[in-house]
Nucleic acid binder design. Structure first.
Lengths: 144, 144
DNA sequence: AAAATTTATTATGCGTGCATAATAAATCTT
DNA sequence: AAGATTTATTATGCACGCATAATAAATTTT
């Protein structure tokens, strides 16, 4: 029997809790967590190439496709042809999308602000550094 | 624009990466991440009351229901009536379930062992402590 | 004991990510 | 320019968590 909570499960619970909180906040103005994350990565002035979004979000392009479709249906974004590469597309925010982006930004900023206050910059920096180290170990498959 | 990666997104990416890794490992012997986690919480000798499982896993009982059903279909567990509380049920491992539990245990132990080696106990302990602090802040809704 | 309440479980639907396969459009070869 | 290849996007299905509502069974109240 594994007595104390393992680190992996701790990370799982932590992320699930944050996701739940973010979804609660987002649902107050008709959004979702995933949409909020995407909004934040779109440049409100000039837009962002669709190909750049997935890497920025650390996720697969295929996973993004559905979310972008929903965002288009909700009137948050529109697609503009990139004259330099006809396969890629520029994702741009609508006026409504810009407003929602601000809401998402507030939530994320507020949350991270609270973390800074409550945890303290020093410990939080160690936490972030260790997170990055684990991420590298996992992504480079240095475990199995 | 938020320049550096926010802590929440770091946690998201970290968990997604671990989940992916665990799913890869589990799929090698016909399992899944979620099933692995449940298996670990079931006492191989005397079984575990179904009501105790969700809290141990830090998840909702309703979320567990489907996974338990699949585990039953796969022949990993069976349910035994609890004579002391007819509403609750004792979840027990089959022989096959015990074997799979060992496999899951190996994966989790190995992963956490590597973390200890590579990160170092001291930094890892800070990481875990901060994780718990953030978890409390989020679960107590001390943010919004 | 019958009715009301509590508690455990299941059903259903949604959101979100992954993987694989299929499309579609551009680029490269010849 | 025609065909082959690469690259971006979408389609589909699975896993997994949540929420809400519906069931079912026990416990408590009367």
């Amino acid at each position: 029997m594994i007595k104390e909570k393992t680190t992996d499960q701790l990370i799982k619970e932590l992320w699930m809790a944050i996701a739940k909180l973010y979804n609660e906040e987002a649902s107050k103005y008709g959004g979702t967590m995933a949409i909020g994350y995407v909004l934040l990565k779109i440049d409100p002035q000039v837009g962002t190439p669709s190909t750049a979004l997935a890497p920025m979000l650390g996720m697969e392009a295929t996973s993004l496709s559905r979310t972008l479709k929903k965002m288009e249906e909700k009137g948050l974004i529109f697609r503009e042809k990139n004259p330099y590469d006809g396969r890629s597309v520029l994702i741009k925010l609508t006026e409504y999308g810009c407003q929602m982006r601000e809401k998402s930004k507030e939530v994320v900023l507020k949350f991270n602000e609270v973390l800074n206050e409550r945890i303290g910059e020093e410990k939080l920096e160690i936490f972030r550094s260790v997170s990055n180290d684990i991420l590298k170990i996992v992504n480079n498959r240095e475990v199995f």
